[in-house]
Amino acid sequence: MDKAIEIKNLTKSFKNVPVLKGINLDVERGTILALLGPNGAGKTTTVRILSTLIQPDGGEVFINGYNAVKNPNSVRASIGLTGQYAAVDEYLSGYENLVMLGRLYHLNYADAKKRATELLEQFDLVEAGGRIAKTYSGGMRRRLDLALSLIATPPILFLDEPTTGLDPRSRLAMWAIIEQLVQAKTTVLLTTQYLEEADKLANSIAVLHNGTIIAQGTANELKDKVGKERLEITIAEGHNFKQAVSAINGQAISSDEKKRLISIATSGAVSEIKRVISLMENHNIEIEALSLHKPTLDDVFLNLTGHKTTKESEEE
C-alpha cells in the first residue's frame, strides 16, 4: 500500500515530561485518519512534528516519502496545515492572504490569483474577499484559514481541531469541505476531541491517550468495542439504586448514584431495551426516564482506559 504518512516509534518530551511515548501510525494515500483524544493527549504535538514545526526526540516520520527531519522543505512543499487558531493576516484581505500564500508556495502569479478566486468561491467568501480579515467572523476566519492551506493543492493536509469553537452551522460546512477534499484524493490527518466528527469523516480512527495510541480501527470497529448506542436509565426516587445496578449485572458501563443514572452499552435494538425494562419491572424498580444516545469520546475512553477524559491538563 502507498503510504502518504508514516510514523515510526515517535517520541517527544517537553522539559523532561514525555508527551509522545512511541507512536506508530500509517496513513494510506487518499484516506482520512482522525487522531482522537482529549486535551493534553499529544495531538497538537504530533501534528507539529509532522508539519516540521518542531523536531522529534526519537523515531522517524515520512511525509509523502520524505523524511521530516532530513528533508523539511520537501515535506513543506507536500503539505497544507491548518492549526487550532485561524492563522490569517488580519490586515490583508481574504484575497490578498490567499495570493500571498500561493506565491510563497511558488505558484506563478497568474495561477495564484486564479486559485485564490476559485477558493473564495468554494469557501463562500466571495463577498468578503476584498475586506481585511480583521472584519471576519470566527467561522469566516476558519474557512479562510482552511482555504489558505489548500492554495497550493497539497497532496497531504493536516487539520488540527478544525471545528473546535465553531457554531453548528459552520461545523457542518467545514465537514462538507473536508469530505470533498477526500473525494479529490487528498490525504487528511485531522485531530479532534469529538467521536462524532471522527465517525463522520474518517476512514480510520486512532485514539491517542497520554502520548500513546491505545486503539486504532474504523469507526465501526471502535464502536463495537463500546457498543453502538448508549442506553441511559434514571431510577425513580425511593427505589433501590444499588439493587438496580446489580440487577443489570455488569452490563452497566457507568452508574451515578447521585443522579440515579445507569448507562448501558447496547446495539440500540428494541428487544435489548425491552429486556432492560422488564428486568427492572421484575425487581419492582421504577424507571423514571430512559434515553438513547450515541457513545461519546468519554464513553470510548471509559471503555478503553477505565477512566474519563476530563480533568486532563491543557494541551501544550
Binding site: 512543499a77 500561493g102 508556495y105 511558488h106 505558484l107 506563478n108 495561477d111 486559485r115 476559485e118 468561491e121 468554494q122 469557501f123 463562500d124 497550493a152 493543492t153 497532496p155 462538507a176 469541505i177 470533498q180 477534499l181 473525494q183 479529490a184 484524493k185 487528498t186
Partner: peptide, 14 residues
C-alpha cells in the same frame, strides 16, 4: 461548491 480543479496547480520551483 466543487473542488473539481483540485490538484491542477503546480509549483514553478524548477
Amino acid at each position: 461548491m466543487a473542488l473539481s480543479n483540485y490538484h491542477s496547480y503546480k509549483s514553478a520551483d524548477e
